[in-house]
């Protein structure tokens, strides 16, 4: 029986750790600096300066959030085991599953909080420069939040059984590939070889399709979105996160803490 109260205790403590970690403030500072720099860069352009401003802002939010998610996520479990803080925690009436889910939830909340700060900076710069803010922007940020939850789940999975270095490599690599799987599938479909078609289709199904969460172009051009543009990626992301966390808890549950 999973206890939400115990998961919440671990999650809130994980958030508190992030709030007291000065390094994350440095990353946040650079992200906001880049968003503000977008205003300067866009002013150098005679055409579509508002679009340039928002392209830079949206990209900065996404890239810095993913960087923080991977940077913190890969250490999430490994650090607890390496520093042996897990010994006293798991001696309490708390299962390994509750511990791992609490750590995951805590990091997702942390990343979302940091993203919220970046979004406020983005909104402030947009308002100050007269760039439009539409509901599509809100939709784009919502889906970026789901993508980040998936990236944190990937980092948590790798963190549960390997070193931070390898976990960063795997998580970063999968995030990068995850944005190419759709192109890969389309490329394979154009091939004459049936094997290539099947292989690329299989890769697209198995690997995360992170372009499902990308509404940057729609947001920057003020294109409208429909409800299914949100709930379909939400279902997809939720399902993917669930599978990754089941795998992570299975691996973490079998580990010997030597």
């Amino acid at each position: 029986m999973i206890s939400p109260a115990l998961i919440w205790t671990i999650a809130t403590n994980t958030v508190r750790e992030a709030i007291r970690n000065k390094l994350l403030y440095v990353l946040l500072f650079f992200a906001i600096a880049l968003i503000l720099a977008g205003a300067l860069l866009s002013s150098l352009s005679y055409v579509e300066s508002e679009r340039i401003l928002q392209d830079i802002g949206l990209a900065a939010i996404r890239l810095f959030s993913v960087a923080i998610a991977i940077f913190v996520g890969v250490n999430l479990i490994h650090k607890e085991v390496d520093r042996r803080t897990v010994y006293t925690i798991l001696s309490k009436p708390l299962s390994r599953t509750e511990f791992l889910l609490g750590k995951y939830l805590g990091l997702v909340l942390t990343i979302w909080m940091q993203m919220a700060v970046m979004v406020m900076a983005f909104a402030g710069v947009s308002l100050a420069t007269g760039a439009p803010l539409t509901p599509t922007h809100a939709a784009a940020f919502f889906l970026t939040g789901i993508e980040l939850a998936l990236v944190v789940a990937l980092a948590t999975l790798f963190s549960s059984f390997t070193t931070p270095m390898l976990a960063s490599f795997f998580s970063g690599g999968l995030w990068f590939v995850g944005h190419l799987t759709r192109d890969l599938r389309d490329l394979g479909a154009a091939s004459d070889l049936e094997t290539v078609q099947r292989l690329t289709a299989l890769l697209h199904r198995v690997l995360p399709d992170l372009e499902s969460f990308n509404l940057s172009i729609e947001a920057a051009h003020g294109l409208p979105v429909v409800a299914s543009d949100l709930w379909l990626p939400l279902l997809y992301g939720g399902g993917y996160v669930a599978i990754l966390l089941v795998a992570a808890t299975a691996l973490f549950g079998r580990r010997d803490f030597r």
Binding site: I10, N13, R16, E17, R84, T85, T88, I89, S91, K92
Partner: peptide, 26 residues
């Protein structure tokens, strides 16, 4: 209750906070 050898705790917490955290978990 369990005291491991050379225990390590979340060093960003105070003595009171860490004991409250363990009390909640318990």
């Amino acid at each position: 209750g369990f005291l491991p050898e050379n225990p390590y705790f979340y060093d960003y917490l105070t003595g009171r906070e860490i004991l409250t955290f363990y009390a909640k978990l318990s």
